[in-house]
């Protein structure tokens, strides 16, 4: 076989691989949208669910999803970024950092249902007086433990890419380490940190298993962080599998459509904000 033929074959194989990826992706999204969009309308978006979700809308569930995601990020982001700063700026590379890093990587690979079980036993049952059992707070705490590894890892990478010369420049002007971190390092690392947060949002919004055990699953509008609630992905699962009738399945597809669009909107806004921030 001539070198030219090999070259062509390689190109064809790679093109096929690329095409397959895009095709599968558009097939999945396209199918869900195709089934879902006819059932998404103003009433669906603004009404309460009726009959276990097989009728009515998903308004309280959209609100719960946003509520839950925001709460999870509010808990996880400061801890994650803080840990990343500690790991990169305040410790030396050594045994301890290696152990911490191994730990975070191991955590990132654990199936979410395991986090759910932990959350159920610890946040829901053991900390019941504080979290009031199944609640947005229990769910968010569980969600936070789940996304921490990703957040730490991405923030750490982002902080590491800030050139040493920025730090030196700042320190050489008589800035303290903390001033240097706040005013030079973190602003430069912000795009990377935001990317980590966006990845985490995706994971939190899409999470179902862990939340089944910690969020409760109430369809009512949450009044506070101590109320039980359900997110869109949970609703989708519960409606599709536990109700299972044709109208319920339609509602499930409609919910899935809204979920995909929500994630899409979050990602685009975050990207736009980030570009806006930098320039």
């Amino acid at each position: 076989m001539s070198v030219k033929t090999t070259q062509k074959m390689a190109k064809a194989a790679l093109w096929t691989a690329g095409f397959c990826t895009v095709a599968v992706l558009s097939l999945v999204i396209g199918y869900v949208m195709f089934e879902g969009i006819p059932h998404v309308n103003w009433q669906f978006l603004t009404m309460k669910p009726k009959k276990m979700g097989s009728e009515g809308g998903i308004f309280p569930i959209i609100v719960s999803t946003i509520y839950f995601t925001a709460l999870t990020l509010a808990i996880a982001t400061p801890i994650g970024v803080g840990a990343a700063i500690y790991l990169t700026e305040y410790t030396r590379e050594g045994k301890i950092t290696k152990i911490i890093r191994f730990g975070t990587e191991a955590l990132a690979g654990i199936p979410s249902i395991v986090f759910g079980l932990f959350g159920f036993a610890f946040f829901v049952i053991a900390l019941e007086p504080i979290t009031r059992g199944w609640s947005l707070l229990s769910g968010a705490l569980t969600g936070a433990t789940m996304i921490l590894p990703t957040l730490i890892r991405t923030s750490e990478e982002a902080i590491k890419t800030v050139p040493v010369s920025y730090r030196e420049g700042s320190l050489a002007l008589g800035a303290t380490k903390w001033q240097t971190i706040c005013r030079v390092v973190l602003p430069s690392a912000l795009p990377g940190i935001v990317t980590g947060v966006i990845l985490s949002i995706g994971r939190v919004v899409g999470e179902t298993a862990a939340l089944m055990l910690t969020l409760g699953g109430s369809m009512r509008m949450p009044g506070s962080i101590f109320d039980s609630a359900r997110t869109m992905s949970m609703h989708l699962y519960l409606v599709a599998l536990e109700v299972g009738t044709k109208p319920a399945l339609d509602k499930a597809f409609a919910t899935a459509t809204v979920l995909i669009l929500t994630i899409f909107i979050i990602n685009t806004t975050a990207n736009w904000l980030m570009k806006h921030f930098i320039s």
Partner: peptide, 19 residues
């Protein structure tokens, strides 16, 4: 910190902050 306020340094590569 006080020392570096009095004794300042210019580096080999210009290192302005991204501001």
């Amino acid at each position: 910190v006080q020392l570096r306020k009095r004794v300042c340094m210019v580096f080999q590569r210009p290192n302005p902050f991204p501001m």
